[in-house]
Amino acid sequence: MLTVRDIHVSYGGIRALKGVSLRVEKGEIVTIIGANGAGKSTLLNAISGFLKLGSGEILYQDKLLPKRPDRVVKAGICHVPEGRLVFANLTVEDNLRMGAYLRRDKGAIAADLDKVYGLFPRLKERQRQIAGTLSGGEQQMLAMGRALMTDGDLVLMDEPSLGLAPLLVQTVFDIILEIRALGKTILLVEQNAYKALDAADRAYVLEQGRIVKKGPAAEVKADPSVRAAYLGTESNTAG
C-alpha cells in the first residue's frame, strides 16, 4: 500500500533521514520505534508532504505520492501529528468536521461522525466543549477522530501515547486496534516500544536516520539488542 524507497531528508545541514526504506501492506499495523531524535516525526512529515525529499521516492497504491500535504490527504493518507494540534478554539464536533473538509457527501460524513463517536464515547459526551479545555488524553482521541474523519485508508500516528497516564496509554493502544478493525491500515511511530510492538504486525527500528532492524513485531521484540536498547523492563516502559 505504501512504499518508501531510500529517502533522504535534511534540515539545512542536519541530515535527519539517511536512506530510509519501508513498506506497509493493506490492513497491517506497522510500527517504527526509535529513541527521541531518531527521525520518526521527520519520516511521517516527509510522507505527509511537509518536507522535501533530498532523494528517494514514496509510492502510495503504486503511484507516486503527491508532494503537498493537502494532496496527500486527498490521496487517502491521514496523519495524527505529534502534539495533537487540535483546533483549541473550536468545539469537539467542529474539530471533527474540519477533518471532513475535503468531503462533500453529507450522508457519509454523518455516518463517519457516528463511527468516531462510537469509537470515542468520551468525545460524544463532550461534543459541544471547546477542544482547548479537554484533557491530554481526550485531545489525543480528538486528534485521532479528526484524522479518521478525512476517510483516509492509511493512518499515520506520531507518538499517540506521549505524555499520557498509564491507564490512558492502554486505552489509546486498544483504540488503535479498533481503528484497524474498521478497515484502516496504520503506520505507528512510538517511543513506547513495548506497547507498540505488542500492537503491531511488523516493526522497523530507526536509529539516527537509518533503519537498523526490521521484521515481524514479535521477532523484533525478542531481539536481544532491541530489548537492551528500547525495552528495558516491562514495568518502566509501560508508563
Binding site: S48, F50, V73, P81, L85, V86, F87, A88, T150
Partner: peptide, 13 residues
C-alpha cells in the same frame, strides 16, 4: 489557528 493542522485536514494553506 494552525497551518500544519489545517494542511492535515486537506486544506491547501
Amino acid at each position: 489557528y494552525n497551518m500544519k493542522a489545517s494542511a492535515l485536514m486537506g486544506i491547501n494553506t
